[in-house]
């Protein structure tokens, strides 16, 4: 390999810098959303993915724009990684008509079909069969598109997980089941909710290649997803990837995090921060200097400020919008 940081997808320096930048955009987006929620400027609820940026960006980096992606309720990062417009995302959270969903969906339903984003899902495990269906379209229309199906550890205990993995497998559909195992389904520790040590074991029983990786290592995520996408494009069927990671924040905005220790949180923040670790890798490889890395972080902050300005400038839906789009023409 000729890349300074070898990776199976052959992402060059520019592409890796882009991935680094996206991770920062995701983190800054989430921190900003957290701030607005705390101030009561955004209502409802939200599920933040701070700490899980490498999983979202590494898997998304391997996809083409024409590929599909189904996101989870903790989907802002996955959505940004797929290329959804952050201005429209922020506007959606502000409930504006300029939002991705015209203010009708909010955090849990952000979708942008033109970039292949089939939407986040408020139902745990709800996206699995939908991703299978998208892959079925690729099969029936004989395209080489694939569908990246994001999901969380908790969802592997839903019936839809098992039904969908089996269906995708028997039909050899081009789906990548990407499990972000952030250790907790709301408060339920996955180690208590599943008897198997690695959730990838569950994929094996459906006859598909399954792998457990360090979800906080960007290059490892890129490599595993690349292999899975290649298989899918060649018509060799689905793959299950379990990416072990950790969510730094609580489940949603009201979470006292009594189910885990501060020491555990501190270990993940200080030693396994996906952004800090990849930054170190980029600098050691000579791809970025410290100053350049800092500048990328600053630019991410600026991009989020611009997204907030876009969101604030938008209009709230008028009352007549209540009945619009219940049914399609």
């Amino acid at each position: 390999m000729s890349e300074r940081i070898p990776n199976k997808a052959h992402l060059d320096d520019a592409a890796l810098i882009e991935a680094f930048s996206k991770m920062w955009i995701i983190r800054q987006f989430e921190e900003k959303v957290d701030y607005f929620f705390a101030k009561g400027m955004i209502h409802g609820t939200t599920h933040l993915c701070v700490g899980e940026e490498a999983a979202a960006v590494g898997s998304g980096a391997v996809l083409r724009k024409s590929d599909w992606m189904a996101a989870t309720h903790r989907g802002h990062g996955q959505t940004i990684a797929k290329g959804t417009d952050i201005n429209k995302m922020m506007a959606e959270l502000f409930g504006k008509t300029s939002g991705t969903n015209k203010g009708k969906g909010g955090s849990m339903h952000i979708a942008e079909i033109e970039t292949g984003n089939l939407g986040a899902n408020g139902v745990v495990g709800g996206g699995y069969p939908i991703a299978v269906g998208a892959a079925l379209t690729a099969r029936l229309k004989k395209t080489d598109q694939v569908c990246l199906c994001h999901a969380g550890d908790g969802s592997t205990n839903e019936g839809s997980f098992h039904e969908s993995l089996n269906m995708a497998s028997i039909w050899n559909l081009p789906v990548i089941f990407f499990i972000e195992n952030n250790q907790y389904g709301m408060s339920g520790p996955i180690k208590e909710m599943a008897k198997v040590k690695d959730l990838s074991i569950r994929g094996v029983s459906y006859g598909m290649p399954s792998i457990t990786i360090d979800g906080n290592n960007l290059i490892e995520v890129i490599n595993a997803t690349y292999d899975a996408v290649e298989r899918a494009r060649k018509g060799e069927g689905p793959t299950l990837i379990e990416a072990k990671t950790y969510r730094w924040k609580g489940h949603s905005k009201s979470d006292a995090k009594k189910y885990r220790t501060r020491e555990e949180e501190e270990m993940w923040r200080s030693q396994r921060d996906p952004i800090a670790n990849f930054r170190k890798q980029l600098i050691e490889a000579g791809i970025l200097t410290d100053a350049q890395a800092d500048e990328i972080q600053v630019k991410a902050t600026q991009a989020i400020e611009a997204a907030v300005a876009f969101a604030e400038a938008g209009e709230k839906p008028t009352a007549d919008q209540l009945f619009v789009d219940v049914y399609a023409d």
Partner: peptide, 11 residues
Amino acid sequence: GAAVGAAITGM
């Protein structure tokens, strides 16, 4: 669900 996914993507 596969019907939903297929419908969203053009079938």
